[in-house]
């Protein structure tokens, strides 16, 4: 297990460096002049350009800039925004809320998704199966911001069951989390259904039934457990979409999290915050995928020897 973990982590290092480098390069190197537009409609004064070039090391070659940025990031120095505020403060204030929201959404996604998938896959073609298939397709077709706006107006404004906007408390995160988890939930349910149907035709399930195991036991113990690996893979791969979706959901529900900050920074051209926020979100995404990889040996003991 230890070697396996080590290999996975080593495997991730080049991906991690490549991904963060791509983001850094897009923000700071691709635009001919990252300082353009910082001074209203006019050309920036030379003193300002000189100061900013110095502060952000814009004269260095790109790899040096990037290495410096990553080293600073690792040592906890997130730099300052164009207006002088420390980026770390802005982000640390907001990360807990976003993590809560994402965590809650993942719980919604996994729990409801797997239950719906199992209920549907147990009797392919049955009423529950069709219900799950149609409703998940409907959820998948509605973009997340439309879903968020609709949920807000129906459950928040008209029915009054949930707060319309967030006050930062846990209760006000429930509706946003359900909206955020809805799309990955649909994927998980469909994947769970498909894999379960495939697994229930396997020899070991038939043998279990022949030896007198109840259908319930055959499905839950022999079918579901074996179906969890593709589901975990999908859920982890889809976590990126969930993180990106949090940007939209936070905007709609006015949650003061990383996503909301990101959108505001995008509008204000604060590329320092955008770079760091996106980099951290991508790191989170990669970490979740690593965690899913770690989970495989637990779900399927055969993998331990791989």
């Amino acid at each position: 297990m230890g070697r396996y973990v080590l290999r996975r982590v080593l495997h991730m290092v080049p991906v991690l460096l490549g991904t963060t480098f791509a983001i850094y390069a897009m923000m700071w190197w691709l635009p001919a002049d990252p300082l353009a537009g910082r001074c209203g409609g006019r050309v920036c004064p030379d003193s300002y350009v000189a100061r900013m070039t110095e502060a952000y090391h814009l004269d260095d070659p790109l790899p040096v800039q990037y290495a410096r940025y990553m080293l600073d990031l690792v040592t906890g120095d997130f730099g300052t925004t164009f207006s002088g505020a420390p980026v770390a403060d802005e982000l640390l204030q907001r990360f807990p809320v976003t993590l809560q929201l994402a965590g809650l959404a993942v719980v919604v996604e996994i729990v409801i998704g797997i239950i719906a998938g199992v209920l549907a896959g147990r009797r392919p073609g049955g009423f529950v199966d069709n219900l799950v298939l149609v409703s998940t397709l409907a959820v998948l077709a509605v973009p997340v911001f439309v879903l968020a706006l609709t949920a807000q107006s129906v459950f928040g404004v008209q029915l009054g069951w949930f707060p319309v906007t967030s006050d930062g408390g846990f209760g006000s995160l429930i509706l946003p989390a359900v909206v955020l988890g809805a799309v990955p939930l649909a994927f998980v349910a469909r994947m769970m259904r498909a894999t379960l149907i495939e697994n229930l035709t396997a020899d070991h399930v038939r043998t279990a039934l022949a030896k007198g195991a109840s259908e319930r036991r055959a499905v839950l113990v022999h079918g579901v457990r074996n179906s969890l690996i593709p589901v975990a893979t999908l859920a982890a791969a889809d976590f990126g979409a969930l993180v990106a979706g949090s940007v939209v959901v936070e905007t709609v529900f006015n949650i003061d999290g990383v996503g909301g900050l990101l959108v505001r920074s995008v509008r204000d051209g604060e590329i320092g915050i955008v770079t760091t926020a996106v980099t951290l979100l991508v790191l989170l995404f990669l970490a979740v995928n690593l965690m899913a990889d770690m989970l495989y040996p637990i779900l399927d003991p055969r993998i331990r020897h791989a």
């Binding site: 080049p14 991906v15 490549g18 635009p31 940007v247």
Partner: peptide
């Protein structure tokens, strides 16, 4: 590996970054 690198950037976030640039 190249595919993995690009897979590591969620599409919406990546597009956001590219369009800000």
């Amino acid at each position: 590996r190249l595919t993995d690198v690009f897979f590591g950037i969620p599409l919406l976030l990546g597009a956001l970054v590219a369009l800000v640039a």
